Computed example of a mutant assay.
Amino acid sequence: MDSIIFDLDGTLWDSSDVVVVGWNNVLSNYQGLVSAVTKEDLQGIMGLQVYEAGRKLFPNIDEDTQQRILRECCEVECLCLAKQGGRLYEGLEEVLKALSVKYKLFIVSNCQAGYIEAFYEYHQLQKYFIDYENPGRTGLSKGENIKLVMERNHLSSPVYVGDTEGDMKAACFAGIPFVYASYGFGEVSSYDYVIDRLDGLLGLFDE
């Protein structure tokens, strides 16, 4: 194994406390059309692309309006996260520092452009990662973005770490092993490895 590609939400951090405030500030401008969202609502769409999130959160309005509202929400959430950050999972920087000595590290998330950058800007963790990708920049699925990162960085044997069924399917699409972060937001039907806390990655591949 030469590298580890990470999901972001539910794997490296939980941004929902900050994001729910920003989203509800936007949604308050659409009273009568949509309702306020909860942290649980947001955690339920983690890992979905924006158009999928719109259909799940606002099924009773037309798709154009869904996407307009979500674009506003996404812009606000990136601004908020760049200023306030999110809740990093315990020991994140120590784990990344140790892993980066042995492996090349990457992020592939189903987020909008600017989201991973906000994670980097506030928490200053970009020094541990070589590259990142998301559908906001490429328009591709998570599996396709994993393959894109693999190809442009000449990775021969990466693994993907994530917390949802979509993450598992993306790793399968890319043809690489999947590490299930069971402490995250989702459940999965299968996995190659499982960790119940982030530092479970340390030594996992030495077994």
Rank of each mutant, 00 (worst) to 15 (best):
D167P: 01
L198N: 15
R68H: 14
E52K: 15
I146L: 09
I195V: 12
Y122C: 00
S16M: 06
E40C: 05
L99C: 06
R137Y: 13
L33K: 14
K97G: 00
S157K: 08
Q124H: 15
F129D: 08
L204A: 12
A174R: 00
K83N: 13
D206G: 04
R137I: 11
Y128F: 15
A181S: 14
V194Q: 15
F119Q: 07
G203I: 01
E207Q: 13
W13Y: 14
P158F: 01
A98K: 11
I4Q: 11
L148C: 02
D2F: 14
Y122S: 09
F6M: 13
Y30P: 03
V20M: 10
L70Q: 06
S189A: 15
L155M: 09
Y115V: 03
K127T: 08
G166W: 03
G114N: 12
A98F: 01
E187H: 04
D192A: 13
K147V: 11
V34L: 03
K97C: 04
L81A: 04
K104E: 06
Q43V: 02
K104G: 03
D167H: 03
V26I: 14
I45N: 08
C73W: 04
Y30W: 05
I61H: 11
G143F: 05
T38Q: 07
W23H: 14
Y120V: 02
D206Y: 03
R137E: 14
K102T: 02
F205Q: 03
L125I: 15
G186F: 02
C73A: 10
V50N: 03
G200H: 09
P59W: 07
M1C: 14
Y30H: 10
F173G: 00
E52V: 10
L48I: 08
Q126P: 00
C80T: 00
D167N: 06
Y132H: 15
S15A: 15
Q84G: 05
P59M: 12
V21M: 07
N145W: 05
D167Y: 02
C74P: 00
V101I: 11
L204G: 13
Q49E: 12
L148D: 04
W13S: 13
G184K: 06
K169R: 08
K83I: 00
D196K: 12
G91F: 07
G32K: 00
G54C: 09
L204K: 13
Q66A: 08
Y193F: 15
